[in-house]
Design a binder for these strands. Structure first.
Lengths: 347, 347
DNA sequence: GATCAATTATGAACCGGTTCACCGCAACTT
DNA sequence: AAGTTGCGGTGAACCGGTTCATAATTGATC
């Protein structure tokens, strides 16, 4: 008896027929509706087990209007920091019966808008994403019209949406203060796209620290749009080749430390001795490199947990009408990559 | 005119009414059915654009039986190697109109079986996954009864399913030969769970190389079930504390190098000088550590690309009836972490 | 101008659940 | 005994598309 073969998908009506009840009754049993007798419930359950019935979520979604799916779109999957974030968020969603739907935006507004449309067509119950440009009219319009709750990941400037952010400003300021305190005056900074919150607030933190110390910033040492390790390699090479090269590097962009380290290695500069180095995000590489690379750290698992929880509450209508923002604190993990500037180090 | 506000979701019948045609006709226009006049097509398209109609994929899926969703379940997201794989696979699927659905199996058969049931309920068109134990009766049964194409990621022993695998055997053998060639005889090996293909074939490669060289394996130096960096740290600490500690470490398990490096650092052993080290998978850390860590490498992007393509072909019925297996080659990237055994290094 | 064939549009059934107005029946009133 | 209440189950409408048998229209032919 029971689940053998599986000649044809068992449907609700088959269960109803086997149990000798109406389809509506089986549905009520499945949804634990209290208006059903224990005797009937047992009889139906027996038929369900016997036939090996599995609910068709697509049909359920059509009628119910809710799909129990949450979409997540980020710039690029293989940024380890995002992976940790998503891992934790997915766990929360899974435990709550939601399925995660994943896409890369490749940091292009067109793709972001197309994805939002696709998510709408798929009728996801909620969306969690990063956007490449908080000022992009098309994207902000699409977000506003989404029709389902949207939570921005480490993005800001759209006050009507829930968001989880990181205190990059504080992190960058602390990192810069650290370098300034060691005597560095020519500090190069590598950041991503200033159209998005993280890089923007990192630069603000950098500027704030420099301003507080009365140190002027050489615009030639501030390199933006550094999005991957190749960019970081190229910019670091260029900066090191300057006639008046920087004594310190603040590699602030996500997951770009490797590129800078390769450039330093290629030109034979030793971290800590020839040049000071701070990473904008922590990693195994930063920790285990010799010397250890001072880095800005925050709790990514907690970020994913909170994001998922906030979105769940919003989807369930448990959240307040106003948008909620969570800002995670950062700490500067000081390692051995930054030494004081030696007097004769530079002319 | 055109998409303003959005008072209520526009449905197919609304478009039909606006264009003055039957709903079936609008459907035919949307599906580019050739039996529709250019004049009607244009009229309907105008109504679609004017109303800002967006198809409801859930309803489409219910009738059509196909959801254009592919599920991907892996042990753990934040293993960088998987991230690269998934990134590439997702791109292929997205370009082909498929949406990726992601879950963690947490390496537990129960979860794997539950996920397979959940995927079935969601009516995904295909599944791509790793499993924790290729011999697990419940899981293999669930896979066989899946009802949709399943592709195994770096798993074997289930001949009826498509799969992409890596030549871990060859990689492990080459790595071991390398260590043996440098004079190492007491080689510790850290692998994951032998119930799954990768660790099993790595151990086989290790044994093959040792056997060919006539070197006996000390069972005490073979540590299995090393699944994360904490495990690797613990086992490495234990091995280094042995009265007759190994002179070389083959840290073969995925993404565990960091744990071993921390242990070596904690005990003050220097890689390359005090102990030789080979990693079972390559990474930024292996490349940029000082000294660079010799590692086994394969093309993860290609792996993801092939997996997605194979699954797409299978879903479209373009694949041959027999299951297909792709085995990616590995290369040993030799860096500076393995020196020859110095005569007085060990008694 | 009538007949037939080919082309194009129609509308209802269908996918597989959920929901709700309604009905049957037993218990409770007076 | 007739009327009322309320619990438990029924069955049909509904969600929003797709599909196909059928109808309507057009064009060709005699």
């Amino acid at each position: 008896m029971s689940t053998q073969a599986k000649p044809r998908q068992v449907k609700l009506r088959d269960v109803a027929q086997a149990a000798g009840v109406a389809v509506g009754t089986v549905s009520r049993v499945l949804n634990a509706n209290p208006t059903v007798t224990e005797a009937v419930r047992r009889k139906v359950q027996a038929a369900i087990d016997d036939l090996g019935y599995e609910m068709d979520v697509v049909a359920q979604s059509l009628r119910g209007g809710t799909t129990k799916m949450v979409a997540c779109a980020i710039r690029d999957f293989d940024i380890p920091q995002f992976a940790t974030y998503i891992k934790e968020a997915e766990r929360i969603f899974r435990e709550n019966g939601y399925t995660l739907l994943l896409s890369s935006t490749t940091n292009q507004p067109d793709v972001e808008m197309a994805l939002l449309r696709a998510f709408e067509r798929r009728r996801v119950d909620g969306i969690m994403m990063t956007i490449s440009d908080e000022g992009h009219a098309g994207v902000t319009k699409a977000l506003a019209e989404a029709g389902v709750p949207v939570l921005l990941i480490d993005r800001d400037h759209i006050g009507t949406l829930d968001r989880v952010t990181v205190d990059h400003f504080g992190g960058a300021r602390a990192a810069t203060q650290h370098l300034l305190g060691l005597g560095h005056r020519r500090i190069a900074m590598l950041v991503g796209d200033l159209k998005a919150f993280p890089s923007r607030s990192r630069v603000e933190g950098f500027r704030a620290a420099c301003a507080a110390a009365g140190v002027a910033i050489d615009p030639g040492l501030l390199r933006e749009r550094v999005l991957d390790q190749e960019d970081a390699f190229r910019e670091t090479m260029a900066l090191l080749s300057l006639p008046d090269a920087p004594t310190a590097f603040f590699v602030a962009a996500m997951d770009t430390l490797g590129g800078s380290l390769r450039a330093l290695r290629a030109l034979g500069r030793e971290v800590g001795r020839d040049v000071a180095l701070v990473a904008g995000s922590d990693s195994d590489l930063a920790e285990l490199y010799s010397p250890g690379v001072t880095a800005i750290r925050w709790n990514l698992a907690e970020m994913g947990r909170h994001a998922a929880t906030m979105l769940l509450e919003r989807m369930r209508g448990e959240a307040p009408a106003t948008s909620r923002a969570l800002k995670l604190p950062t700490t500067l993990v000081i390692r051995q990559s930054c030494q004081a500037v030696t007097p004769g180090n530079r002319d």
